[in-house]
Design a protein around this nucleic acid. Sequence first.
DNA 1: ATAATATCCTACTTATCCGATAGGAATAAT
DNA 2: ATTATTCCTATCGGATAAGTAGGATATTAT
Lengths: 151, 151
Amino acid sequence: MIPKRSKYAIQALKCLAKVYRDKKHLSIATIAEQEHIPRKFLEAILLQLRNGGMVGSKMGANGGYFLVKHPDEIVLSSIIRATGGPIALLPCVSLNFYEECIECPHEELCGLHDVMLEVREASIHILSKTSLADLILREKKLARKAESKRK
Amino acid sequence: MIPKRSKYAIQALKCLAKVYRDKKHLSIATIAEQEHIPRKFLEAILLQLRNGGMVGSKMGANGGYFLVKHPDEIVLSSIIRATGGPIALLPCVSLNFYEECIECPHEELCGLHDVMLEVREASIHILSKTSLADLILREKKLARKAESKRK
DNA sequence: ATAATATCCTACTTATCCGATAGGAATAAT
DNA sequence: ATTATTCCTATCGGATAAGTAGGATATTAT
């Protein structure tokens, strides 16, 4: 499981992506309210994303946050990583939280390691081909589908 | 990430799978030593697996644990589930640890939910086609590969 | 029978991490 | 100035995971 932190980050960035072309910025409070995220917690998360170079900020009254890259270029896997969320199911197959198993004499001979690598690759494949723009597009499709179903 | 508990469970069951055809059983102590798992912890895990009907046990001196099903029929996903390990990356797409997001008005309209479902399906697909027998087979292949590489 | 060897069962400890909060300093717009 | 906002550090409480303790119960071997 990825931490809530990562999920909140994705939601927040999705909000920012929606106003990207208008070159608008959004305040923490606005995003927090829109997405039902605890305000102070979101503050910490956005700060982390900013220090990681994923978003920009404008201080002072009428300030806020904005994306520094196009929503097409920001993919889910990098958001998860930037917020400290592990994707792999085991430490020994994690790129960012790697830890070797004491019990494995040779990692390259471990069958479980091998399988878990496959799982990781499959997950990362999906998560790094899906951008914020894709996410928004997906929601539009889902809305249309629900609409046509309701009739 | 899945808990260590689940990983230990897989290792232990792999041991039992290796002696399955000889209708042997192994004691906790034996497995613990072989796999470098804390003895008492393994005890708790095997007990859980037994109560879940995945393994059988024989009490008393010269007792131990054994598989009740063929190693072909025991897949990784069910071991992970039996030991309380989540496979999904978010609670809202988890089969066994489902929790709805307060922030999502309609789950069916959430793009993230949609993507995470895909990730879950991909992971489960791999984990439920891989059995203990496959795991052992994989290790044999890896060993052969390493052998031919060493030359 | 008795001793030795196992599993069974419940409860506990301990450490770590996660989610969330507090409080104020710095900065910019009006 | 006042107000709105980000920036920064520190902290708290609760949950969960990993591992431990100790004894009850069952079986085998001698």
